[in-house]
Write a protein that binds this DNA or RNA. Structure first.
Lengths: 109, 109
DNA sequence: TTTGTATGTCGCAAACATACGAATTAAATT
DNA sequence: AATTTAATTCGTATGTTTGCGACATACAAA
């Protein structure tokens, strides 16, 4: 009931949303592909993944709605690419979280 | 239909599972609390979150099942703590992903 | 203008996630 | 032994995600 999510601090909500972007292997694969810049074309991306075109398109839209990727029509094709600014934003916020100090002694557990 | 997830490379699946752990603000909050080591006790954790004890317990179990946290009974209480080894593992794999080179030029989009 | 090709949207179904009250377990206290 | 307390499991309601076929759009080419 996800609604309760709103009761958390906004930075936690934001981080959780970023994490959700990466919570499906298809979306990680898409991001990696675009980072490697093997290609940008929608159809080529779909061909690389073990999912229907429809489903890949949905994952692309999700990434696009979040602002992590951009798409531009080029004739019959659509070229996708990462948004560098957004990527850096996500990266820095995630790294800040990953760098929370973890106690070097074992807890009483 | 989540079943299709299996058709992806195992490292992508693993990363996606880690991301899923952080895809809810309650679980991020729990991890942060344990990292700051403000306390370890189940009930205290529940008191810090805007959720019922039952629900917090569920999130704790999820984190525990993944191996990220451990719990130890201490009388009537249960002390939780992060598993340092697992945390380092997740951290390094996530950082590797976040460090994929992003093209410094803007794509044709 | 008709045909083909690349993308994307809609609607549905199955699976999964979130949330909580009630019941349960198990140790501590009286 | 009975009661209290802390934590968890069970059952259930509801919302979200994933996945896909069928349909729609939009440009390109014949």
């Amino acid at each position: 009931m996800q609604a309760k999510t709103v009761d958390f601090a906004t930075d936690l909500q934001e981080l959780a949303q970023f994490a959700k972007l990466f919570s499906h292997p298809a979306r990680i694969a898409i991001v990696k592909l675009l980072a490697e810049k093997k290609n940008c074309i929608s159809g080529d991306i779909a061909n690389e993944l073990p999912l229907s075109r429809t489903t890949v398109c949905q994952h692309l839209q999700e990434l696009k709605n979040s602002g992590l990727i951009k798409g531009e029509i080029s004739g019959l094709n659509v070229n996708y690419c990462l948004d560098n600014k957004k990527w850096k934003d996500i990266k820095s916020k995630f790294e800040a979280f990953l760098n929370i100090s973890v106690p070097h002694f074992e807890c009483n557990c």
